[in-house]
Amino acid sequence: GQTTVQVRVPYRVVGLVVGPKGATIKRIQQQTHTYIVTPSRDKEPVFEVTGMPENVDRAREEIEMHI
Rank of each mutant, 00 (worst) to 15 (best):
Q2H: 14
Q2W: 09
Q2R: 11
Q2K: 15
Q2E: 13
T3M: 06
T3A: 02
T3F: 07
T4H: 08
T4G: 04
V5C: 07
V5L: 13
Q6Y: 15
Q6R: 15
Q6D: 04
V7S: 06
V7G: 02
V7E: 08
R8E: 06
V9I: 06
V9Q: 00
P10S: 02
P10R: 03
P10C: 04
P10I: 04
Y11H: 15
R12P: 14
V13T: 14
V13M: 14
V14T: 06
V14Y: 06
G15V: 00
G15E: 12
G15W: 02
G15I: 01
G15K: 10
G15D: 14
L16A: 13
L16N: 09
L16I: 11
V18A: 08
G19Q: 05
G19F: 01
G19H: 03
P20I: 14
P20K: 13
K21A: 11
G22P: 01
A23I: 09
A23D: 06
A23K: 13
A23C: 09
T24C: 05
T24V: 06
T24L: 01
T24E: 09
I25G: 04
I25Y: 07
I25P: 04
K26S: 07
R27Y: 06
R27M: 09
I28L: 06
Q29A: 14
Q30D: 13
Q30L: 06
Q30H: 10
Q30G: 05
T32P: 04
T32R: 00
T34C: 08
Y35C: 12
Y35P: 02
Y35V: 15
Y35I: 13
I36Y: 03
I36V: 07
I36L: 02
I36E: 00
I36T: 01
I36A: 06
I36G: 05
V37T: 15
V37H: 05
V37C: 11
V37E: 08
T38M: 10
P39C: 10
P39G: 07
P39H: 08
S40T: 12
S40P: 14
S40K: 12
S40F: 09
S40M: 13
R41G: 11
R41D: 14
R41T: 13
D42W: 09
D42L: 10
D42F: 11
K43A: 14
K43E: 11
K43Q: 13
K43L: 05
E44L: 05
E44D: 14
E44G: 07
E44A: 11
E44M: 04
E44Q: 09
P45H: 07
P45T: 07
P45V: 00
P45I: 05
V46M: 09
V46K: 09
V46F: 06
E48Q: 11
E48C: 09
V49P: 00
V49F: 01
V49H: 00
T50V: 03
T50F: 05
T50Y: 05
G51A: 04
G51D: 04
G51F: 03
M52P: 05
M52Y: 11
M52C: 11
P53Y: 00
P53I: 03
P53Q: 11
P53S: 10
E54W: 11
E54K: 06
E54V: 07
E54N: 08
N55L: 01
N55S: 08
N55P: 00
N55I: 04
V56Y: 05
V56A: 05
V56H: 03
D57I: 12
D57Y: 09
D57R: 14
R58Y: 07
A59G: 05
A59E: 00
R60D: 00
R60C: 13
R60K: 13
E61I: 07
E61G: 09
E61C: 12
E61H: 14
E62W: 10
E62P: 00
I63P: 07
I63G: 01
I63Y: 03
I63V: 06
E64N: 10
E64L: 14
E64A: 09
M65S: 15
M65V: 07
M65C: 10
H66Q: 15
H66I: 15
I67S: 13
I67C: 12
I67T: 13
